[in-house]
Amino acid sequence: MAFDINTLLSAQLHDLKNQMQSLFGAQSELEEALELNPEQQTLLNNLQNHSNALSLRLVELLSVLKLQNQSFQPNIDEGWLMDTLSPIAHEFHELHGMVISLDFDEDFNQFYDEQLLTIAAHNACLNAYQAGANTIAFTVIEHEKGRWQLDITDNGPGFDNDLLNDKNTFSPSGVQNGLGLYLIDQALKAHKRNNLTGKVEIRNNLNCGAQISLIFP
């Protein structure tokens, strides 16, 4: 029987995910213990932030593996965008000191897969941070027939010119343009509704910084 690397990766990632759940349980016990010693609360906060970031990475890798094996079925439900993005904004502020603004109505809701949108938004923030940005703004544009887009704009140096074409459309082939952009692209392409497919557009701002537009069907 041939060795199946995908089976190995899937099993290992699921085991790591189980270990993360155990870690979260231990954190809950520690949180109760710290009620008697509140001056150490910042230690728990740091532990929780790093655990959440690691957990998100594991979920992300599992999702990508399923997408590649065509075994992932996106759950396209109506969701509250503020609830999805607030934890990401909190994480990047607490861990990296970034200023993340969510510039849309807190009651805005739309159809999307929460897990995939989380992957896309998290990687967009990570790319911006690694490029040197310290501020990111999330804004929303609504289109006809229920289509909508989420613009993610930073104050970094912008995209390299070789990533941009005349229409600012991102069409990756593999991961040579970076794993982050590849994951964002895969997350959007998995969104299919009303015979349309999600897509990613990228551009540089006139003053400075980059913008990634996640366009949902």
Rank of each mutant, 00 (worst) to 15 (best):
R147G: 00
T197Y: 01
D103P: 06
L206C: 04
F92N: 04
N69M: 03
L16A: 14
I88W: 06
L183F: 15
P38I: 00
I88D: 10
Q176G: 12
N195M: 09
S101Q: 15
K17A: 15
H191D: 12
N134M: 06
R203C: 07
D185F: 07
P74A: 03
N204P: 05
A89E: 06
K17I: 02
D83S: 13
Q41G: 01
F24P: 02
L188V: 09
N134D: 15
D15M: 01
H93L: 04
S28K: 05
G146R: 06
W148M: 11
L23M: 14
G174H: 01
V140A: 08
Q70D: 13
N165Y: 00
K199I: 03
V64I: 14
L214A: 07
Q41P: 05
D113Q: 03
D162Y: 08
S22N: 14
V175E: 12
A210C: 09
G158Y: 06
I5W: 05
S63L: 10
A121I: 07
E31C: 04
W148R: 02
Q211I: 07
G174C: 06
L65Y: 04
E144Y: 04
V99P: 00
L150D: 10
L179W: 03
D166Y: 03
A133E: 08
N123H: 11
Q110W: 08
N46F: 10
F170G: 08
R203S: 15
H50K: 15
V59F: 00
F159L: 13
R193D: 13
F216S: 15
R147M: 09
S171C: 11
L9F: 04
S63I: 02
S213Y: 07
A210R: 00
G132L: 06
D113R: 03
T169G: 06
S86W: 05
G180V: 12
G180K: 07
Q40K: 00
F108D: 09
Q176A: 08
N134C: 01
Q149H: 05
N207A: 07
K145N: 14
T139Q: 07
N195F: 10
V99F: 01
V99I: 13
D154W: 01
D113L: 05
S63V: 09
G97A: 09
H122V: 08
A128M: 04
Q68H: 04
A53V: 08
D185G: 12
Q73I: 05
I152L: 02
W80R: 08
A121W: 01
L47Q: 09
N45A: 14
D185I: 02
V175T: 15
D151F: 10
Q73K: 06
I100W: 06
A120D: 00
A124P: 06
S51E: 09
L150Q: 00
L34A: 07
N161W: 02
G174W: 14
A131Q: 12
N69R: 13
F3K: 07
N69S: 08
L9K: 14
E31K: 10
E201C: 00
I136V: 14
F138I: 07
A133C: 04
Y129M: 09
A121N: 12
E91A: 06
F216P: 03
V59D: 15
N6K: 01
L164S: 03
T135M: 12
V59T: 13
A128W: 02
A210P: 02
H50Y: 10
N75S: 14
L16G: 00
R193M: 12
T139H: 05
L16E: 15
M98H: 03
F159R: 04
